[in-house]
Nucleic acid binder design. Structure first.
Length: 877
RNA sequence: GGGCGCUUAGCUCAGUUGGUUUAGAGCACCUCGUUUACACCGAGGGGGUCGGGGGUUCGAAUCCCUCAGCGCCCACCA
C-alpha cells in the first residue's frame, strides 16, 4: 500500500472532525472526574473568523485537549455575544438598503428583523472554529440573548437595584450621535486631532470693555450660561460681579469665580457650557447655572441654535467662526492639538450629553475582585504585568453606565407610572411591576396600560459579565448540579484589550453572585499584527483570510504557525512563513510515520545500537516531557510546543530513527520495532493538542482502533525519571558523530566510503556508543590508542582526541591552522577562567560549588591544550 | 501629565533568586548533498562588545542610577 510522501490535510481534516463529533468526544456532563472548564470569549454574533480569534481559540483548544488527555472532564463552552451596538448597526444598515428606516418601525417590528438577521447571518464564526479543530461542546452553545441568559441578566439587574447599587441619574454621558446611544467610558477612544483654539471677545454688559475667552468649540457659545475666572487672578479683579453678553445670541450671563480655572491656560477666562462639558456641568451645579442644551440627538443644532438650527455641529463650527469674525468677536485663532473622544464602534466624535441613564455603583463591588488578583492570588493573570493595569483600574473605578439607547438587547426592567423622578418600579414582568407600582404609588387604580417600560436596553457587557455563571444556569438556579460542578472555571483566554470591559467585570460578578472567582487563570494573548507591526484591520486589508490559510497550510499547520512565536501577552507578528513552518512540521511527522510503516519486521536479534538509541530516547523523552509540563504550568504554550517540535524533529527523526533504521531492504527486529511504535505513539499524544488532525490520522493509520481508543481521548504520558547519564554520554557521542561528519564534509569523503576511527580516550567515554557512532558515520572500526596517529585527520571532543587516517597526503598546513585556532580559543578561555581563580576575593567569597566548576573548567581546558599542543608538535615535527 | 513595560544574532524571542564552558533557540542566510521516510529534506557553517554611559559586586544580559528610542494603559484644563 502506497502512502503519499506528502501529508494532505484537506483529505483528512473534515473526516476526523466528523468522527470526533459522531463519537461525542467533546460532550461533557458532570461526573466523578475532576472538571476542567473553559468558557469561550463569546465572539460577536456579527463576527467572522479573524487572526485574533484563530490564535485565541487555538490556545483554548490546546488547553482543553491536553486536559482531556490528562483524564479530566474537559468542558469548553462555546457561544456568541449579541453585541448590541454592532449588531443593531448592521441590521439598521441592512434595513436601510431595503428602504426601511428604523425610526419608522415599532420596537417589536425592529426586533423581529434583528432576530431574522441573527438566524440568517449570525454564528458563521462558530462553524469556522470547527474548521480550526476547536473541540467545544457544541451541545452547550449559548447566546447572550437566549431566554435563560436574558432572564439571568434581568434577575441580576433587579437584585442589584434592590441592593441599592443601581441608580438612575441625570448625568453627563458619552453620546455617540451616529449610533444615537450612550457609550461607556471604555468604549471611547481618544484621538489626537489638529484643531484650533479660538479667542472670542465677550462684551461686558454696560461698558465698552470686553473679555476674551479661548475655546475649541465656538459653536457651543449658544449654550453658554456663564464666564468663569479664577478669583486669584490679578488681571480680572475688575470683572467680579459683572455680566457679559454672549455674542450672536446676546444672552446676558454672569461672570463667576472659581479656582478651577487655570490662570496659565488660554486667557485665564473660561466660558461655561454646562450642557456640553463634564467640567462645565460641575461648575454649573456649584454655581447654580442654567443648563442650555443646544443639540439634537444627532448632534445637529436645535432651536437654541437660532439660525443654525438643523445644521450639523461641524458645519456650524465653520459658519459661526465666520460670523463671529465678520461681527468682530473673533480676536485670533491658534493651532491646537487636542484629544478628541471618538466612538470605538462608529468612529463618530463623542458628544458629552446630559441625559437620564442607569448606573451601577462599582466601588464596593470591585473590592473583592481587586483583592483576588492583587492580594490573595485567587485569580492569576498571565503575563503578570497586567496585574498592575488591573489594580490601577480597580482602585480608581467609576460607576458603570449600563443603559444604552438601543433596542437590540435586554430591555431595562424599569416601569414608570408617573412623571416624578421616583415614579417607577423595577420588576421582571409587567404584572409584578403593576403590583409594585400600585403599592408604591398607593394608587390601586393603576392599570397595566398606565405603566411604561424604560425604552433603553442594557450594555452588552452587562450580560457577558455573567457568562461563566449564566452558561451553567448559575444565576437562575444558583444551586444546580452543572454550576456546582463546572464553576469556578479553570482558564480564561482572551485579549488584554477587554481586561476592563469584560475580565474585571466577570471577576466582580463572580464574587458578587457566587462568592467565588469565575476562573483561576487568565491568559492574555497579544494582538496579531502584520510583519510591519501594523494592527490587522479591514481598512488596511492586511488581514489574511483565515479559512484560506487553513486551506493552504492545513489547520494543524496554521495552529502551529500561530503558536510558535506567541508568548503570552506578546503581540504576534504574523507571517505566512510561520504557517509554512507548521505545514513542514506536519509533513515531517507524516514521513516519520511513513518510514516506520515501511519496515518489514522479522524475528531477529536486536542490534546493540538500536538498544542504546532507544534507551537514550526514553531518557530524552522524559526529560523533555518534564520541561513541557513546566512550560504548561507557566502558560508558556509556545515554549511547550517548541520543546515538542525539537524532540520530534531532532531527537526522534534525526537521531533515533537514523539509529534504529534497518539496512536497505533488510527487516527490523521485532523488539526495536515495537518500541519505536510505542515511542511514536507517545510523541503523537504530546503533539495532539497542537496538531489534532494529523495526529489522529496517523494514530488511526498505525493500528486499527476502536472509537474507545481514539487519540483524542487517549492518555497523556506521565513524567518518569530520565537517566541523565545516558543523555550526557549520548551528547558526547553525538559530538563525535558530528566531528566525523565534518571531516567527511571538509575532505569531500563520500558517506559510502567507510573509514577507521582511532581515539585517545582521556574522558573514559563508554565504548557502548561506538556501535552507534559507527552506524551513523560509516566507521568500520574503532580503536583505542595511547598516542596520536601520524598522518591522520583529527578532531577533539572535550579532552578526547580522535583520528581518522585517510588515503593520500593530508594538508598539513590546513591541519596546523585548524589546531592553532582551536588552541588559541582554548587558551583564551583558560585565561578567563584563571583570571577568576587567581582573584583572591573570588576564591574567598564565591560559593564552593562555583569555584569547583571553575576548577573543572581549568582542568578540562588544560587537558585539551595539552592534547592540542601535542598534535601540533607532531604535525610540525 | 501620571503609571507600566520593552530594547539580547537579519527576524521573532528564551535567558527563572547575579556565577555549568568568553550568551541560547526557531526561522532566515551561506556551503555541500538526487544516501533507498521526508528537497515541505539531510549534513555542515557563518552571525551578537546583550540600546548608550555610569555605579554596586570577587563576578552583571541579569541589581541600582542616568540618557536615548519604542510600546501599552490611565487621565483629559477650555
Amino acid at each position: 500500500m502506497d502512502i503519499p510522501s506528502k501529508y494532505d490535510p484537506k483529505r483528512v481534516e473534515n473526516h476526523w472532525y466528523d468522527y470526533w463529533m459522531e463519537h461525542n468526544y467533546f460532550f461533557s456532563k458532570p461526573d466523578k472526574r475532576e472538571p476542567y472548564t473553559i468558557v469561550i470569549p463569546p465572539p460577536n454574533v456579527t463576527g467572522v473568523l479573524h487572526m485574533g480569534h484563530m490564535l485565541n481559540n487555538t490556545i483554548q483548544d490546546v488547553l482543553i485537549r491536553r486536559a482531556r488527555l490528562m483524564g479530566k472532564n474537559a468542558c469548553w463552552v462555546p457561544g456568541m455575544d449579541h453585541a448590541s451596538i454592532a449588531t443593531e448597526a448592521k441590521v439598521v444598515a441592512k434595513l436601510k438598503e431595503q428602504g426601511i428606516e428604523k425610526a419608522d418601525l415599532s420596537r417589536e417590528a425592529f426586533l423581529k428583523h434583528a432576530w431574522e438577521w441573527k438566524e440568517q447571518y449570525g454564528g458563521v464564526i462558530l462553524e469556522q472554529l470547527k474548521k480550526l479543530g476547536c473541540s467545544c461542546d457544541w451541545n452547550r452553545t449559548k447566546f447572550t440573548m437566549d431566554d435563560d441568559m436574558s432572564a439571568s441578566v434581568i434577575k441580576v439587574f433587579i437584585d442589584l437595584f434592590n441592593k441599592g447599587l443601581i441608580y438612575r441619574g441625570y448625568r453627563m454621558v458619552n453620546w455617540d450621535p451616529e449610533a444615537q446611544t450612550t457609550l461607556s467610558d471604555e468604549e471611547v477612544v481618544y484621538e489626537e486631532k489638529q484643531g484650533k483654539l479660538y479667542y472670542l471677545d465677550y462684551p461686558i454688559e454696560g461698558t465698552d470693555e470686553k473679555v476674551t475667552i479661548a475655546t475649541t468649540r465656538p459653536e457651543t457659545i449658544l449654550g453658554d450660561t456663564a464666564v468663569c475666572i479664577n478669583p486669584n487672578d490679578e488681571r480680572y479683579q475688575h470683572l467680579k460681579g459683572k455680566q457679559v453678553v454672549v455674542p450672536i445670541c446676546e444672552r446676558v450671563i454672569p461672570i463667576i469665580e472659581d479656582e478651577y480655572v487655570a490662570m496659565d491656560f488660554g486667557t485665564g477666562c473660561l466660558k461655561v457650557t454646562p450642557a456640553h462639558d463634564e467640567n462645565d456641568k460641575q461648575l454649573g451645579e456649584k454655581h447654580n447655572l442654567e443648563i442650555i442644551d443646544i443639540f439634537n440627538p444627532d448632534a445637529s443644532l436645535n432651536s437654541f441654535g437660532m439660525h443654525y438650527e438643523g445644521k450639523d455641529r461641524f458645519v456650524v463650527r465653520k459658519a459661526i467662526v465666520k460670523e463671529l469674525e465678520e461681527k468682530g468677536f473673533l480676536s485670533k485663532t491658534e493651532d491646537y492639538i487636542n484629544k478628541v473622544g471618538t466612538s470605538e464602534r462608529t468612529k463618530a466624535v463623542i458628544e458629552p450629553r446630559l441625559s437620564d441613564q442607569w448606573f451601577l455603583k462599582m466601588e464596593e463591588l470591585a473590592r473583592p475582585a481587586l483583592d483576588a488578583v492583587t492580594k490573595t492570588g485567587d485569580v492569576k493573570l498571565f503575563p503578570k504585568k497586567f496585574e498592575n493595569t488591573y489594580r490601577h483600574w480597580m482602585e480608581n473605578i467609576r460607576d458603570w453606565n449600563i443603559s444604552r439607547q438601543l433596542w437590540w438587547g435586554q430591555q431595562i426592567p424599569a416601569f414608570y407610572y408617573g412623571d416624578g423622578e421616583d415614579d417607577f418600579v423595577v420588576a421582571a414582568t409587567a404584572e409584578e411591576a403593576l403590583e409594585l407600582a400600585r403599592a408604591k404609588s398607593k394608587n390601586s387604580e393603576l392599570t397595566s396600560a398606565s405603566l411604561k417600560q424604560d425604552e433603553d436596553v442594557l450594555d452588552t457587557w452587562f450580560s457577558s459579565w455573567l457568562w461563566p455563571i449564566s452558561v451553567f444556569g448559575g444565576i437562575l438556579e444558583p444551586d444546580n448540579e452543572e454550576v456546582n460542578y463546572y464553576y469556578p472555571t479553570n482558564d480564561l483566554v482572551t485579549g488584554p484589550d477587554i481586561i476592563f470591559f469584560w475580565v474585571s467585570r466577570m471577576i466582580v460578578a463572580g464574587y458578587e453572585f457566587r462568592n467565588e472567582r469565575p476562573f483561576e487563570n487568565v491568559y492574555f494573548t497579544g494582538l496579531v499584527r502584520d510583519k510591519q507591526r501594523r494592527k490587522m484591520s479591514k481598512q488596511l486589508g492586511n488581514s489574511p483570510d483565515a479559512l484560506k490559510l487553513i486551506e493552504t497550510y492545513g489547520a494543524d499547520g496554521v495552529r502551529v504557525g500561530l503558536l510558535l512565536s506567541s508568548a503570552a501577552g506578546n503581540d504576534l507578528m504574523f507571517d505566512e512563513d510561520l504557517c509554512q513552518q507548521g505545514k513542514n512540521f506536519a509533513n515531517k511527522i507524516w514521513n516519520g510515520f511513513r518510514l516506520v510503516n515501511s519496515w518489514e519486521v522479522a524475528e531477529i536479534e536486536q542490534p546493540e545500537a538500536s538498544k542504546m538509541g532507544l534507551a537514550w530516547y526514553r531518557a530524552k523523552f522524559n526529560q523533555t516531557l518534564s520541561e513541557i509540563e513546566d512550560h504548561f504550568s507557566k502558560y508558556r504554550i509556545s515554549d511547550a510546543l517548541m520543546a515538542i517540535y525539537k524532540l520530534v524533529w531532532d531527537d526522534y527523526s534525526s537521531w533515533l530513527l537514523e539509529i534504529v533504521k534497518p539496512p536497505y531492504q533488510k527487516p527490523i527486529d521485532r523488539k526495536s520495532f515495537d518500541e519505536v511504535i510505542d515511542i511514536f505513539e507517545q510523541n503523537l499524544k504530546l503533539l495532539h493538542p497542537f496538531m489534532p488532525f494529523l495526529t489522529e490520522e496517523v494514530w488511526q493509520y498505525i493500528k486499527t482502533r476502536s472509537p474507545e481508543n481514539a487519540l483524542v481521548i487517549s492518555e497523556w504520558p506521565r513524567v518518569q525519571e530520565a537517566d541523565a547519564n545516558l543523555i550526557d554520554s549520548f551528547s558526547m557521542a553525538a559530538e563525535v558523530i558530528s566531528g566525523v561528519r565534518t571531516i567527511r564534509k571538509e575532505k569531500n569523503i563520500a558517506m559510502k566510503e567507510s573509514l577507521d576511527l582511532y581515539l585517545i580516550n582521556e574522558e573514559k567515554l563508554s565504548s557502548n556508543w561506538d556501535v552507534v557512532i559507527q552506524k551513523l558515520t560509516n566507521i568500520s572500526s574503532v580503536s583505542y590508542v595511547d598516542q596520536a596517529v601520524e598522518g591522520a585527520l583529527s578532531f577533539r571532543v572535550k579532552s578526547n582526541e580522535y583520528f581518522i587516517p585517510v588515503k593520500g597526503a593530508i594538508d598539513v598546513e590546513a591541519e596546523i591552522k585548524k589546531i592553532s585556532e582551536e588552541l588559541k580559543y582554548t587558551r583564551g578561555f583558560l585565561e578567563s577562567v584563571m583570571k577568576k581563580l587567581s582573584n583572591e576575593r573570588f576564591v574567598n567569597n564565591a560559593p564552593e560549588q562555583v569555584i569547583a566548576i571553575e576548577r573543572k573548567k581549568q582542568a578540562d581546558a588544560e587537558a585539551k591544550i595539552e592534547t592540542l599542543e601535542k598534535s601540533l608538535a607532531s604535525l610540525e615535527g
